Computed example of a mutant assay.
Amino acid sequence: MKVGFTMNLIDLMMSDLIIFNESISSKDELFEEIGRILEENQRVTKARKVIKDLYKRELETSTGIEDGFGIPHAKSKAVLKPTVCFAHTGKMDNYVGLDEKPIECVFAIIVPKKASEIHLEILSGLSRKLMDLEFRKQLKSATNAAEILEIINKEESS
């Protein structure tokens, strides 16, 4: 599957993979919830394997960026289809960005193990989008999955 970042982020997301849960207050709870919804929505074969792969990637260096945003990502044999999840959580003190601010908004990227090129394209495209202060503000103020999808769709069509 050869894809340039003409591939839209919106095509990798679905409303069932968007989490709004203020009670999530740690990286452990976040990764557990991401794994659960990925398995529930048949994007992965085993939640446990994907969670393990997310942690393995975190050991290299934290995926917290700045302004409360994080981009945890992993390549895994358990992934059936490249997917991006979004989560707006409580502030996680054990997951901080380069600016030392707790993470509260996350785009989790999971791709099949042999999809290195796709993985990097998604990650770099998303990182560029998150440089936009207005985009980040809109994401933080969204209150439901439909708003998140609308914000991303609008960003991609501008």
Rank of each mutant, 00 (worst) to 15 (best):
N94D: 15
M13K: 00
I151G: 00
D132R: 14
K154C: 04
F135M: 03
T6F: 11
T89F: 00
P102T: 10
D67I: 08
L54A: 09
E155G: 01
N144M: 07
T45G: 04
K75C: 09
S76T: 01
I110P: 01
A87L: 00
E100H: 12
E33H: 04
E147F: 04
E32Y: 10
M7F: 12
F69W: 08
V96P: 03
A115L: 12
E134L: 14
D99L: 03
T45M: 09
M13S: 00
E33V: 09
E156M: 01
F135W: 08
M14F: 04
S124C: 07
V106E: 00
A146Y: 13
P72E: 05
K114S: 15
F5I: 14
D53E: 11
V96D: 04
K77T: 14
I71K: 10
I110R: 01
S141N: 14
Q138A: 07
K140H: 14
N41G: 04
D132S: 13
V111I: 05
G35S: 09
K114H: 15
S127K: 05
P112D: 09
A146D: 15
T63C: 05
D16E: 15
L9G: 02
R48W: 09
M131E: 15
E121Y: 11
E29C: 02
L54E: 08
V44I: 08
N144A: 05
E39A: 08
F107A: 05
R48D: 14
L54D: 10
T45C: 02
S23R: 11
L54I: 12
D93K: 15
A87D: 00
H73P: 02
I103F: 03
N94Q: 08
K27T: 03
S23E: 11
E40Y: 07
I110Q: 03
E39I: 03
I109W: 04
I152D: 01
R36P: 02
P112A: 08
T89A: 02
A78W: 04
P82V: 02
P72I: 01
C105K: 06
I19E: 00
C85E: 00
E147S: 06
V44Q: 11
K27I: 06
A78P: 07
L149I: 10
D11T: 03
N8I: 04
S116I: 10
L149R: 05
I103D: 04
F5S: 14
L123V: 10
E60Q: 13
K137L: 06
F5A: 12
F107L: 13
N21D: 14
V96M: 07
L59S: 11
D53M: 07
L80P: 06
P112E: 10
K27C: 07
F31P: 03
T83R: 02
E121A: 13
K91A: 10
N153Q: 15
V106Q: 02
L126H: 05
I24Q: 01
E58H: 09
S158Y: 14
S26E: 03
M14L: 09
N21Y: 00
Q138V: 01
L12D: 02
I103G: 06
E104Y: 02
L149M: 15
D53G: 12
T61Q: 10
R36T: 07
L12Y: 03
M7I: 11
L139M: 06
H88W: 02
G90Q: 04
M1H: 12
S76E: 10
S116Y: 11
L123F: 07
D11V: 00
L54R: 08
A115I: 09
Q138H: 05
K114N: 15
I118Y: 10
S23L: 05
N21R: 04
A78K: 06
K113R: 15
A142G: 06
F107I: 06
E150S: 11
